[in-house]
Design a protein around this nucleic acid. Structure first.
Length: 512
RNA sequence: GCCAGGGUAGCUCAGUGGUAGAGCAGGAGACUCAUAAGCUCUUGGUCGGCAGUUCAAAUCUGCCCCUUGGCACCA
């Protein structure tokens, strides 16, 4: 069976992990975990883009070798994945031999086919910035900004990849494959871009200007630049050229930010693949950005908080929950500590965490910590189970369409209903009664609350794997049944010994 | 300028033709198993504006305004 193959964009080594990196990892991980739970064999790739001018310059500035800088970055970014509980199966670094070999093999193939040619590139070059400038770099008076220093017109030989001849089929592919890009409206932006003729793509840099890269296999005086290096990670990591490649490619989803859709992933990459005789990706999943308006000061500390610090403060599940609950995939969203705390306190601590606390306390206090068997089913129970069945179906459908924010809303609405059910049954009152009927109701109520809680944390497992595991453990629940089976109400947990009362999401102290 | 997304209650957002919704925040109450948590009730909106289509429009059409992005060898 072919794997469900999903990737994130690879991060650029010249920088530190930030919210954007973290979000993309979490989103991709949520999809990956969801597919695994749905029964797919998932292969999840992420990695690091390590070549290029900025890395070379930063390393020089610090007096270290580029690879040392990359090793550092790799440690940081791999650390981020671990911290976020990201379940990637592999981590590709573009300085690895397995990657370089594939890049060179593909370049050689395209060169042999005549898809790559050498030509002069003429343009305005800034020595200070060590880059060619574009018309849009000019200021409003049509002058070059002073930061570029002296700008000279020069001519440089470089290698180019033929793009223009591929325009027609790409347009047709975009028009006929509605699921190629999610959300769909992004397709229009690509088509808009393709209305104008596209120029061939410059894919090399002379080594005098850029040394830190992969050498062109057919000309040792050049390295390849950006796209033929970075994009190729998606195939190099899964063994392009080897048998195993066929088990994974074509990729099911490239998860990317909206900034790198046009032109790299929607134009260059499909054309590169087609030219190399490789199948096209099935889909691109394009997410929006987190907007951090101004640099809001925290009221309590007077400092600006790094969103990633919130992972350390409140745990990875809380962070994963927040970004998944707040972001409508494809749109932009606002990030603030206030909103984070509102979600944390209200949804996680008050609704979910507190529910677990009260269930465990009641079980440990009156019933020796053992989940009783249900003994009656009246309208209150029937209603709750009906809601569960609807919630499960709706939420899975929403997850399937990447509507995680609404799916989580439904799931937490169900959690709210468990709290409501508890108030209606008031087991703390029933516990004071000697009446046979009340005892049956008490047993039923505590069972129903426990079972409903088990089901609810199961439903949010792709987003909050740690919480799921903890709550399962505390309810004494173990199962190797597949997900959809675990999400069906049963009585397996009756008779289980539960854990001590546990605060899942402790409230921060010094906040109003 | 062109293209696209968004503009619905104080805040964040659901809602694609049929009497305006949720969560949070605000107000009131009863309860007490629980992380001063949970529950019930409640305040609050001319659905960006103006026109049009329709028996009926947040929802369809047109124009305008605000906002966020994109606009080729830049990542």
């Amino acid at each position: 069976m072919k794997s469900f193959y999903i990737t994130t964009a690879i991060d650029y080594a010249n920088g530190r992990p930030h919210l954007g990196h973290a979000y993309e990892k979490v989103l991709t991980d949520v999809v990956a975990r969801f597919r695994r739970l749905m029964g797919d064999e998932v292969y999840f790739l992420t990695g690091l883009d390590e070549h290029g001018q900025k890395v070379q310059q930063s390393a020089e500035a610090r007096g270290i070798e580029p690879i040392e800088l990359c090793d550092e970055a790799a440690e940081n970014f791999i650390g981020l994945c671990a911290k976020l509980n990201v379940s990637n199966d592999d981590y590709i670094r573009t300085t690895e031999d397995r990657h370089k070999e594939v890049v060179q093999a593909i370049l050689q193939k395209l060169y042999d086919q005549g898809d790559i040619y050498k030509a002069d590139y003429h343009g305005y070059y800034s020595r200070r910035a060590e880059q060619f400038l574009q018309e849009k770099d000019r200021d409003e008076n049509g002058e070059w900004p002073v930061i570029f220093g002296e700008v000279e017109e020069i001519t440089e030989s470089n290698y180019f990849f033929k793009l223009s001849q591929h325009q027609d089929w790409l347009v047709e592919h975009l028009e006929t494959n509605e699921t190629f890009i999610f959300p769909r409206f992004r397709t229009k932006q690509v088509l808009e871009f393709l209305k104008e003729p596209i120029n061939d793509l410059c894919i090399s840099r002379p080594k005098e200007r850029l040394e830190w890269g992969i050498s062109l296999p057919f000309d040792e005086n050049y390295v390849t630049y950006v796209w033929f290096d970075a994009l190729v990670n998606y195939v190099s990591a899964i063994g392009y050229g080897m048998d195993e490649f066929e088990d994974r490619w074509p990729v099911d989803f490239h998860v990317i930010g909206k900034d790198i859709l046009v032109p790299p992933h929607a134009v260059y990459w499909p054309i590169m693949l087609k030219a190399a005789g490789i199948a096209l990706p099935k889909s691109l999943l394009v997410h929006g950005w987190w907007l951090i308006s101004g640099a809001k000061m925290s009221k309590s500390t007077g400092t600006v908080i790094d969103p990633l610090d919130l992972v350390d403060l409140y745990g990875s599940d809380a962070f994963r929950y927040f970004v998944t609950r707040e972001m409508n995939v494809g749109q932009d969203s606002e990030f603030s500590e206030e909103r984070y705390l509102a979600r944390y306190n209200s949804d996680l601590a008050n609704d979910l965490g507190n529910l677990l606390s009260r269930v465990l306390t009641m079980l440990n206090r009156g019933l020796g910590g053992v989940i009783p068997s249900p003994e009656v089913e009246e309208e209150l129970e029937t209603e709750l189970w009906k809601l569960w069945d609807a919630t499960r179906e709706e939420t899975l459908e929403l997850y399937n369409g990447f509507q995680f924010h609404i799916g989580l809303e439904k799931a937490f609405h169900f959690i709210g209903s468990i709290n409501r059910y508890a108030e209606q049954r008031a087991p703390w009152k029933l516990a004071k009664s000697e009446d046979e009927k009340d005892i049956k109701l008490l047993n039923t109520t505590l069972f129903v609350m426990s079972e409903a809680l088990r089901l609810a944390v199961g439903l949010v497992e792709p987003v909050m794997p740690e919480t799921n595991e903890k709550v399962y453990g505390l309810l004494g629940y173990e199962s190797d049944a597949e997900w959809k089976t675990r999400l069906v109400r049963g009585t397996d947990i009756a008779g289980n010994k539960v854990g001590e009362k546990t605060i899942l999401f402790p409230k921060p102290q010094n906040h109003s």
